[in-house]
Design a protein around this nucleic acid. Structure first.
Lengths: 292, 292
DNA sequence: ACGCCGTGATACTCGCCAGGTATCAGTCGC
DNA sequence: GCGACTGATACCTGGCGAGTATCACGGCGT
């Protein structure tokens, strides 16, 4: 059983994403014939057909879909190996912590302070990212550790330590009828005709149906909120979303949000262990009382 | 940033394991000079020294230790991609379920029965393995799903669903003084001079200190228990360990054991989802009442 | 001290295979 | 039917991976 080479996996992923040999070859910076040959050799070696070269187009077979998912994971792991090794070779290796810009700000501040006070603590580079990016960064080695939120973020495949549990609030323009209430339910908040909830892309990039605007960055969303065009239900601690002319109202039956620190089990190092221990230590100290 | 090839990772892992270029080259089936060159090229490309070629021996640097761990994970992921794709290409793809021989027998039986009754269920191959092997099998694609036990097994990096919680029992020869008690504590059980608890290897292969015999397979352990040479504290449901002349006594303060079904998030397929759903469904039906 | 063994590195040669160009073979549109 | 477009095939070339021979260096016998 001769292993696959990462080149073959890269080639297959390119073709599977484009479903077009010519364009995939372009992206890869090679000519089309070598790509065709590489894919058919891959299929021959696996003894499995990965693509249906149905006239007028290429399609993935079931096995091809399996291969696409597995190949992406494998390529991430290889890339992570290279990146983490490079960083480990630095004279003073640092930890990269990924976090959603604006979320869990206070907790992060306290974590960084506490960590800096530890003797011999590795320096920490904070990598601010968009919603849902952290998992990918951890997987491909661009980050060592991430602050994430259950149940929003995809925690599959990571080790995690719970840091904080809180309820959620609805963020409303000050003048809105619902803003006068001192608490809301999800039923109140759904189907508010003048303030539809924004729709985020799913993992596959498609958008759920609904009346709200489609957004895919936090700044887009911030803009819409500031304009009073959308309604937001977010963890109580996400103060970055606070505007002077908006009001936060607790949503009593919204699911609790748990802030966690997550890392890839294959990169578990003493430096990460120390940071996680510091983070877990913050749990016992005072934080603003969780809502909900 | 040109990626690493799996060949380079395999070579590095071989050298890092042997700490000897000649023997590693032998194992790899190549000559020593190409191996030396491959490693130094790898180091040059990463810009990081991985090995200290101190005369009279090769040693891993810190970065080398990082690389070793990451490279193993990456190679597992690549191997998993190949194996799972091959299996997905079969006309009637099956799921491979890994489980410790003898553990959770009744639950497994019920799971297989229930799954077989599902319409369109994939056939299941059961892969019986030794203690601690399941994680590796899931990681490198030899298995799709595993029955594992918290807190004994290494669940890092997997998705899991809890199936069953139970207490633990001590297994004693019928004539032993402790066998007359109707419950025990860990303090009772530790340091019983004539029945030291067997020692299992740690993840790195070394053994903890202690008076008990070293074991690394279940049959070794079974032999020792049958001879009355060692004492066992195991989940109550591990009936495979029951001998006619042995007695099970509950250990009231032993940590609860949770039986879980685990799978690799990168191989999450409809077939696995269906099996997991079936397994979770068993939770609500009658099982022997958990002890503790 | 000397030579010997064992180690990893270097020098060179060779052959395979990745990759390029040119071309073929279907399929669709008009 | 013709042209446009797609992926497959034929054939060639160059680079790199792998082999053999050898070097450089340290440890350790006697």
């Amino acid at each position: 059983m001769d292993d696959l080479e990462t080149r073959e996996l890269r080639y297959f992923v390119a073709v599977a994403e484009d479903l077009h040999f010519g364009r995939a070859a372009d992206r890869l910076g090679i000519a089309q014939p070598p790509l065709s040959r590489a894919i058919s050799r891959l299929e021959r070696r696996l003894g499995v057909q990965l693509l249906d070269r149905d006239r007028r187009g290429v399609e993935l077979t079931d096995a091809g879909r399996v291969m696409l998912r597995e190949a992406r994971a494998a390529l991430d792991a290889v890339a992570a190996a290279a990146r983490r090794t490079r960083r480990a070779g630095n004279p003073q290796p640092s930890l990269v912590l990924a976090t959603k810009a604006g979320a869990s700000h206070e907790l992060l501040q306290r974590l960084l302070d506490a960590h800096a006070n530890e003797a011999g603590a590795a320096p920490i580079d904070v990598l601010l990212c968009e919603v849902g990016e952290q998992a990918g960064l951890l997987r491909n080695g661009r980050a060592d550790v991430a602050i994430m939120h259950r149940p929003f973020d995809d925690l599959a495949g990571f080790d995690t330590e719970d840091l904080y549990v809180e309820g959620q609030i609805a963020l409303l323009p000050a003048g809105h009828p619902l803003a006068a209430r001192d608490q809301l339910t999800m039923a109140d908040v759904r189907d508010v005709p003048d303030l539809p909830i924004a729709r985020w892309p799913r993992l596959d990039g498609s958008y759920p149906d609904g009346p709200g605007p489609e957004v895919h960055t936090q700044s887009q969303l911030a803009q819409l909120v500031a304009l009073g065009k959308t309604l937001l239900v977010i963890p109580a601690s996400s103060r970055a979303w606070q505007w002077p002319d908006h009001v936060a109202v607790p949503v009593v039956d919204a699911p609790d949000v748990t802030t966690v620190i997550a890392w890839s089990p294959s990169s578990h190092s003493p430096a990460i262990a120390s940071l996680v221990r510091t983070a877990a230590g913050l749990r016992s100290t005072a934080l603003p009382a969780p809502a909900g």
